[in-house]
Design a binder for these strands. Structure first.
Lengths: 214, 214
DNA sequence: GTATGTGAAGAGGTTCACAGCA
DNA sequence: TGCTGTGAACCTCTTCACATAC
């Protein structure tokens, strides 16, 4: 057992594994092997074993993995044992959808507040929270919130991110189609939906889906 | 100029470059260098030049890139010169947000139809389309639609994907938190929002943000 | 001088093959 | 026999250094 850097790609896949373990567990499997998890998730079995190996010996040779144990171990690895508080900024179409979304709970996320600058939205109840004026964010007690979700237009995203950083937020999920600059200690994940869609037509092009003349 | 496989990562970044070129172009820059584009997008300049090099010589040494030419070239590479028709399946919170989203147009995507199974939604106008019954999908003329967006619950996603494939769809953007199996010729991109959020806490963990004991 | 395009070196990640344990 | 854990080989992608063109 030695200390080794965990590849970013491994970290990216761990939540996926957690999802898979839970689904198979709910189906009544108290024990799973890497192959069954791999088949369910559409990845390879040795990729899963390799990823797990960075964190110690999670399974038993000849047997497999105990689902409830594995669930707990992955949660510990991902720092999901305790729950995390999240704030949302931008309660437009996408922000409203996120507030109504029930999928965060299973990972221990609680959206504790939502903010917008539109007077028509402020004060209204959306999901489990009442939308607050965006200028109120800075009144949040320092380090009282773990994560932020940015769902504002691109033009406002950097400014919002700066405020989030100033109240001690450690991670940001950004839906605005713009690069956001934050201190290195803050992790930022950007999802640009239009850009994800925009790479699909490349693979449709009949002739050269695998290469190009350079 | 030789034939060479284009890395997947390069394809993934090309739409990002397109976005950057357009923003800088709108700011009045008719010519840009790799460094200014790189700084704007938060990537490295040599990464951009390397990526472009797979597709030929898009710039002029000592000068840079003509923005309007580069815009057109990237669109040709990504097969975005012609517009693409898109259907959306699942008009819940997220699906509604997608229908109201105006960001697809700039890449030439048109959402031409939306489907759901909820009688309360069917027949209602959302965005620019009237929601149709999901059973009507299969009536779409074969190959009349290029891409599909899946925004249904996980339990229904595979079934919907199968129908989309049967009407000749070439690519799918999937928001359902489940692995979807499709023929190899169909490209699928999955965005699992909860999973993206779920990897942020890993980087918050104070001690071992860079490695682990194995 | 300035900025591109690219072979080569270097990292990083994936796949393999197999040792070892149940 | 079945399945895990892992060094080593392999492959892909990133970074660098510099030749080349404007």
């Amino acid at each position: 057992m030695r200390y080794r850097k965990v590849p970013d790609e491994t970290v990216r896949r761990m939540p996926l594994y957690l999802r898979g373990v839970r689904v198979l567990s709910e189906r009544g499997q108290s024990n799973i092997c890497s192959k069954s998890l791999a088949d369910y998730l559409g990845v390879s079995a040795w990729q899963i074993r390799k990823d797990f190996s960075y964190f110690g010996e999670l399974g038993k040779p000849g047997v497999g993995y105990d689902t409830s144990k594995l669930d707990k171990q992955i949660r510990r690895i991902l720092n999901l044992v305790r729950s995390h508080s999240v704030v949302l900024i931008g309660v437009g179409n996408l922000g409203s959808a996120i507030l109504s979304f029930t999928g965060f709970g299973q990972y221990g996320f609680n959206i504790i507040a939502a903010f917008d600058c539109d007077a028509n939205v402020i004060g209204k109840k959306k999901g489990h929270v009442v939308v607050d004026d965006v200028s109120e964010i800075s009144r949040l007690k320092k380090n009282s919130v773990d994560l932020g979700i940015i769902a504002v237009p691109a033009s406002a995203a950097q400014e919002i991110a700066d405020v989030l950083v100033s109240i001690g937020i450690k991670g940001i999920l950004n839906f605005a189609p713009v690069y956001i600059s934050v201190p290195k200690k803050v992790k930022i994940v950007t999802i640009d939906i239009a850009i994800e869609l925009a790479r699909l037509p490349y693979y449709m092009s009949s002739g050269q889906s695998q290469g190009a003349w350079e």
